[in-house]
Design a protein around this nucleic acid. Sequence first.
RNA 1: UGGGGAAUGGUGUAAUCGGUAGCACGACUGACUCUGGAUCAGUUAGUUGGGGUUCAAGUCCCUGUUCCCCAGCCA
Length: 570
Amino acid sequence: MSSNSQPGSTLDFIRARIAEDLKTGKSGGRVHTRFPPEPNGYLHIGHAKSICLNFGIAAENEGGLCNLRFDDTNPTKEEQEYVDSIKQDIRWLGFDWGDREYYASDYFDQLYAWAIQMIEDGKAYVCDLSAEETRAYRGTLTRPGRNSPYRDRTVEENLDLFERMRAGEFPDGSRTLRAKIDMAHPNLNMRDPVMYRILRAEHHRTGDKWCIYPMYDFAHGQSDAIERITHSICTLEFENHRPLYDWYLEALGIYRPQQIEFARLNLTYTVMSKRKLLALVQEGHVEGWDDPRMPTLSGLRRRGCTPEAIRAFCDRIGVAKFNSTIDLGLFEFCLREDLNKRSPRVMAVLRPLKVVIENYPEGRVEELEAVNNPEDAAEGTRQVPFGKVLYIERDDFMEDPPKKFFRLAPGREVRLRYAYFLTCTGVVKDSSGEVVELRCSYDPQTRGGDAPDGRKVKATIHWVSAAHAVDGEVRLYDTLFSKENPDDAADGEDFRERLNPRSLEVLTGCKLEPSLATPQTRLPYQFERLGYFMADPRASRPEMPVFNRTVTLRDTWAKLQKQQAAKGGP
RNA sequence: UGGGGAAUGGUGUAAUCGGUAGCACGACUGACUCUGGAUCAGUUAGUUGGGGUUCAAGUCCCUGUUCCCCAGCCA
């Protein structure tokens, strides 16, 4: 599955380290990882990197395991809806955690017992400082903090107070349990960090059993320890927390997993923070978490991205500690690479222009054979109806074409895909001068698409028979943001101001070949010469199919036009 | 200004003990083509600056520079 496991390629630094640990016996010959999401939002492509890493490493090693564990220590932000979506998305990506579905909340009793143990050992104390006071006492990046006035309470007093915290005797935020470490430590995480806070909130799993909740820092390392995780892989921002996890584990005298940090995924034209994605959803900038413009796995799925393409992408981007930003183009490449091999080809006209073939017999209909997938002969062929009146793509005709335009123009001959050679003989315009119809002639000798006299055409265009066309709606997507780095706060702009006003274009009145009346939902189709399109699972109806454009085909003509425009100017 | 990390073509990512800087995407040529798709062949372009050690430095030493993370009772 992973290129990293194939011969000839080298291991990334994490896999190299694990291989080393296996060799030296450091992890007891085991490889056990975990993917630890917080159920406070939907998974996105950045999580896919972590999922592929953790589950991938487990799969590559004999006997390797990867747990799914929800880090649900903050009931004010977490919901069952998110748990369900996360599980669905991981399965969809192609990974399986067996029966090892865990929750940090499963360990609340154990964590509480450990907190008591730390109090008894004189390593934790109840602090009455308010949140603001705690911050003031913490000091700054360059100045040490001061000891809390409550730091030297007796073990008995701490035990009593902590039990009463749990019993609900004190209001939210009035007290915390803190670790007694060092208020002058250069790593701020070590300046007597909060272990427990008072929080009256309904937890999605434990209900109202608790009114105190452990901090992530006091839960994460222990959760890994309980599950006997050998390699605890996480993102760079937790590097500063590693000394604290290790301190807790040491203080408690329990098993210590090895944490290894890597750089999270950044993508151009994309925001990846859950906070910002939540804002997009809540403020209605997108349709929801699964809006096809969202980088969420549910959005990508709805758009037509395949798990295979996403996994291939995660494989290619590599794993390192350098904070990099991947070009969106690489993701599109992975999409096209997968879809080109597997997508069934069909013909669809997005912006129809009517064509009447004047020398074609009135009322005649032919069934022409079309290849389903030129990349895979096993996919066979289908019959496509042809008639006197067709629709072609508006972009495939120009009345006054520039030099390198190969398609249809007055007097010019092109091939209709799988059909006949067609020559434009006339143009019909409306009162405003807009071309509304083409008059054409066809060469009956070229049925199937080849001329017996061997003459060539410069272009082949797609078409749909007007009499048989299915009307459909097509949604074209562009990047959600118009700036390459929407997160860049340099000019004081909010990321919302960088939303791309043209990220969605809805096309109605599209003309689809008849087989698209009831579209498949397994894979996107390739609309020949246009791109890949997935039937929208929400909006599509039998009488009116709706398609999402997954990604365009590579388009050298569009690129040429762009270059011309850039050179010549408007 | 404290602490913790990181710097290899336009973008990512490799390079075993110090021994030919490789791969992918992009860009650019050309071939082929019933998708201006795909495919094939080729070109382009890089070791953060400055010193040092060495026959030989991306790699070792010294010294700068830049970027990221940390002052939630978020994760």
